[in-house]
């Protein structure tokens, strides 16, 4: 007779593949099917709750099939289902029938970021006025607040996203390219804003290890349409940056 752990492994094998659930000591096939369906269906519903716009774009049936396949190969590691589906956009990228619809995974990534941001820890945003008052702003080491995410979209989905948010019929995506978005929760509300690639590069440099003055020394690239100062202004206006660990007041003489 095997141990409880061994029996549990055989039970899970039967959950993953009905053909393996034939040992009598696992229980009756119809009953096992209830557990199997509960596990699968609850994860499909968790994904449908997390990704309503993705579901709208794919249609209910295709979404359920894709979500079921994802659930089978990617059981959650965490009972907090609010965090389930971190890899769902990458999974959709790998589905051959969606090869011509990659903007769907852009929308999926925006939805995931919105959910992550809505559950992230609270932390005050650095105000532009407080930064301006600091005696050595370029020496400050800044980092994004926990309730922010940067999402790199591969299509211009701004109009599409707006339509989905408004409950309207989806519109085709705009041109392919490099379309970064910042997703930020501030005062209890989550905002999603397309930003310039240049702003994205400054955001990536402000990672809590680099002084602001050094981070602002970004090489311009072809197509850049903003200055470092403007990009910093965007990050401050959106509330992306946190107050430095050492409070600004303490640095003030």
């Amino acid at each position: 007779m095997d141990t409880l752990a061994d029996w549990q492994r055989r039970f899970i094998a039967a959950m993953r593949d009905p053909a393996t659930g034939t040992e009598a000591d696992l229980g009756q096939p119809d009953g096992l099917a209830v557990y199997r369906n509960n596990i699968r269906q609850s994860l499909i519903e968790a994904l449908a709750t997390a990704f309503p716009h993705t579901r709208a774009l794919l249609g209910e049936h295709y979404f359920a099939a894709a979500a079921g396949d994802y659930a089978r190969g990617h059981p959650p590691a965490d009972p907090r289902l609010m965090h389930y589906g971190a890899g769902f956009a990458d999974f959709l990228d790998g589905l051959p029938p969606l090869a011509d619809y990659r903007y769907v995974s852009d929308v999926c990534r925006l939805e995931r970021a919105r959910l992550d941001v809505s559950h992230a820890a609270e932390a005050p945003a650095l105000e532009a006025s407080r930064l301006a008052e600091h005696p050595d702003p370029e020496g400050l080491v800044l980092a994004p607040r926990p309730a922010t995410r940067l999402v790199s979209c591969r299509h211009d989905v701004a109009n599409l996203w707006r339509r989905l948010e408004d409950g309207g019929d989806p519109v085709p995506p705009g041109e392919a390219g490099d379309w970064p978005w910042l997703v930020v929760r501030r005062h209890g509300r989550v905002g999603l804003t397309p930003v310039s690639p240049f702003t994205r590069r400054l955001h990536e440099r402000l990672d809590g290890t680099t002084a602001l003055g050094e981070a602002l020394m970004i090489d311009f690239e072809a197509g850049d349409d903003a200055t470092a100062g403007e990009a910093l202004g965007t990050l401050l206006a959106l509330g992306v940056l946190g107050v430095p660990a050492a409070p600004i007041e303490e640095d003030t003489p």
């Binding site: 549990q8 492994r9 899970i12 959950m15 557990y35 609850s42 994860l43 059981p75 009972p79 289902l81």
Partner: peptide, 14 residues
């Protein structure tokens, strides 16, 4: 039970 070998199975298993 619902957890085994690092994976979580979202049901209340017997």
């Amino acid at each position: 039970w619902s957890r085994l070998d690092g994976d979580f199975y979202n049901d209340l298993l017997p």
